[in-house]
Design a protein around this nucleic acid. Structure first.
Length: 579
RNA sequence: UGGGGCGUCGCCAAGUGGUAAGGCAACGGAUUUUGAUUCCGUCAUGCGGAGGUUCGAAUCCUCCCGCCCCAGCCA
């Protein structure tokens, strides 16, 4: 995994590079600042790759800082999972694991500083009234009656807030900026609020907590962060970020830069909605393989390198965009293709009885482990009179572009022999239960001495030693590219996002596959063994399917035939219509 | 209708006055014991629209259109 792809250029890296060149920055310091109120998702991966990537490329450092300023939403479980996920993605913060809560004392002192310089005040206005006073997007706000409280009274009140003398919501500390500003964030924003809540790290030490705006920039300054990179929705906060930095005796001067957050088609990346999916049990948990969380993606069998590659490909810009989920699949295949060992597994078995093969006899064939990598070696597989192929690989009445098995047709069994289908065995209601075939012993290994060709090679397993397994196939969690665009996101949930196949058959080598490690089921896709395995029954998850151009061709062909039928029918009608 | 942003191929995205990179998707073709992979090729006289400046404009100016964010004591 040492092949480092070309680092991409983007407007933020350009800014960093020119700051370094101009000497504005000595050593670049970035930070990834999640609030520990949920699991990380692939949108965070974009930010992580950006912040840690820049630090590495420019020989700086990147901190992991928990923005834990709201104890009512934050939990230790999330603090732990976030660290795990960042490491898994392949990044390391070294010594620089920080928490905004580490700075509560310093932040408090700076709040007093603002009071002492007349730039902040305690406001007793009730929340509803404050909202009314703030004005609207088009009308200016009104000054609070408390705006002109004396410095002494403000200081006294603030200290008593800290001492716990007042209930939640009784008063707040506000910055004294401009109630008429067109930027709502500058209309005397709240800096501290009373929250009698236990904090996952500071416990009950505090009952007043700084808001995001009062904590973030100052934390950056404390850590000497040079480039504070966040998403576009914080753009309006930048003037406030700068105002605080300029009005406080902070030890450094960080700058905020914003980029467009990631959106992916057929996917939801809102923490609020992901939390609902989990709590309302639409998925099995934060690590359900359909979830866009790093935990879910990991369980699905996607390697971290694929996420990094995906992020590298999509770039960083300020334009609002939605990346096609196919782009993610492509990155996953690109990473998995060269590394995943090949195996054979039949998901929907159809029995083949090879009539000219002696009953009770088997033989061993050699299958290669990777077509592009001879050093991956080979493995033995068993062949016998009864084998299983994929139901999809047989059609009684095949359309023109269907190359696989059909009555009277000869195909190759991969690493095995040529077989020809002679007869369909039917069950009581006429369903196909097996196919009677003959094989050509001269084609052992897969080639005919007489040089004749077949149009298809099928994967298969031998009845003699196949292992029964469950395989889970996942589709997009949502059935439209823009879930929620019409209102209720949950209404766009794809009811068939998970298909569980319980009668799958694996070649024996798969039974011992390590959990979570990708293997390619030949002709089907990349899969990995899931932790839901029992001692007697392996469970595999499909990470992503192989590109399937056959499907389009066969379906396209079927569509063409349907169209042709319609044309023929209307032509016939026209002919029979009385002149 | 206040403030702040954004509009370049179906989807991302370079380009910042010198005549439209690249990736994904799609479509051809070659090789193939995975209809996979790999390889070759096609795919924006055009940069939201209209004017203007210029020898020359996606890039500069003007007007217009569309979309996103902001009225939490969330982040």
């Amino acid at each position: 995994m040492s092949d480092t792809p070309e680092p991409t250029r983007d407007f933020i890296r350009d800014i960093v590079a020119s700051d370094l060149e101009a000497g504005h920055t000595e050593q670049v310091v970035t930070r990834f600042p999640p609030e520990p109120n949920g699991y990380l998702h692939i949108g965070h991966a974009k930010s992580i790759c950006l912040n840690f990537g820049i630090a590495t490329e420019f020989k700086g450092r990147c901190h992991l800082r928990f923005d834990d300023t709201n104890p009512v939403k934050e939990e230790q479980e999330f603090i732990d999972s976030i660290q795990h996920d960042v490491h898994w993605l392949g990044f390391d913060w070294g010594e620089h694991l920080n928490y905004a809560s580490d700075y509560f004392e310093q932040l408090y002192e700076w709040a007093e500083h603002l009071i002492r310089t007349g730039k902040a005040y305690i406001d007793d206005t009730a929340p509803d009234a404050m909202r009314a006073q703030r004005g609207t997007l088009t009308e200016p706000g009104q000054n609070s009656p408390d705006r002109y409280r004396s410095i002494e009274e403000n200081l006294d009140l603030f200290r008593r807030m800290r001492a716990g003398e007042f209930p939640n919501g009784a008063r707040v500390l506000r910055a004294k900026i401009d109630m008429t500003s067109g930027n709502m964030n500058l209309r005397d924003p709240v800096l501290y609020r009373i929250l009698h809540a236990t904090h996952p790290r500071t416990g009950d030490k505090w009952c007043i907590y700084p808001t995001y705006d009062f904590a973030h920039g100052q934390s950056d300054a404390i850590e000497h962060v040079t480039h504070s990179i966040c998403t576009l929705e914080f753009e309006d906060h930048r003037p406030l970020y700068d105002w605080l930095i300029e009005n406080l005796p902070v030890p450094s001067r960080p700058r905020q830069y914003e980029f467009a957050r990631l959106n992916i088609s057929y996917t939801v990346l809102s923490k609020r909605i992901l939390t609902r999916l989990v709590s309302e049990k639409h998925v099995s948990g934060w690590d359900d393989p359909r979830m866009p969380t790093l935990a879910g993606i990991r369980r699905r069998g996607v390697p971290a390198a694929a996420i990094r590659e995906f992020v590298r490909r999509i770039g960083v810009a300020r334009a609002y965009s939605t990346v096609d989920v196919a782009q993610l699949d492509a990155a996953i295949r690109e990473v998995l293709n060269p590394s995943a060992p090949r195996r054979m597994a039949v998901l929907r078995p159809l029995k083949l009885i090879i009539e000219n093969y002696p009953a009770g006899q088997t033989e061993t064939l050699q299958a290669i482990n990777h077509p592009d990598d001879p050093s991956a070696g080979t493995r033995p597989i068993t062949f016998g009179r009864e084998i299983y192929i994929e139901q999809d690989d047989f059609m009684e009445d095949p359309p023109k572009k269907f190359f696989r098995l059909a009555p009277g047709r000869e195909v190759r069994l991969r690493y095995g022999f040529f077989v020809t289908c002679n007869e369909i065995v039917r069950g009581p209601s006429g369903e196909i239960v097996a196919l009677r075939c003959t094989y050509d012993p001269a084609t052992k290994g897969g080639n005919a001495p007489d040089g004749r060709k077949v149009q298809a090679t099928l994967h298969w397993v031998a009845a003699a030693d196949a292992v029964a397994a469950e395989v889970r196939l996942y589709e997009q969690l949502f059935n439209r590219p823009d879930p929620g665009a019409d209102g209720d996101v949950m209404a766009d949930l794809n009811p068939s996002s998970m298909e569980v196949l319980r009668n799958c058959l694996l070649e024996p080598a798969l039974a011992s596959a390590p959990e979570g490690e990708a293997v390619q089921f030949e002709r089907l896709g990349y899969f990995c063994r899931d932790r839901d395995c029992t001692p007697t029954r392996p469970v595999f998850i499909r990470t992503v399917g192989l590109r399937d151009t056959a499907k389009a061709q066969i379906e396209g062909n079927a569509q063409l035939r349907a169209n042709a039928d319609v044309l023929k029918r209307s032509a016939r009608k026209a002919e029979t219509r009385p002149g």
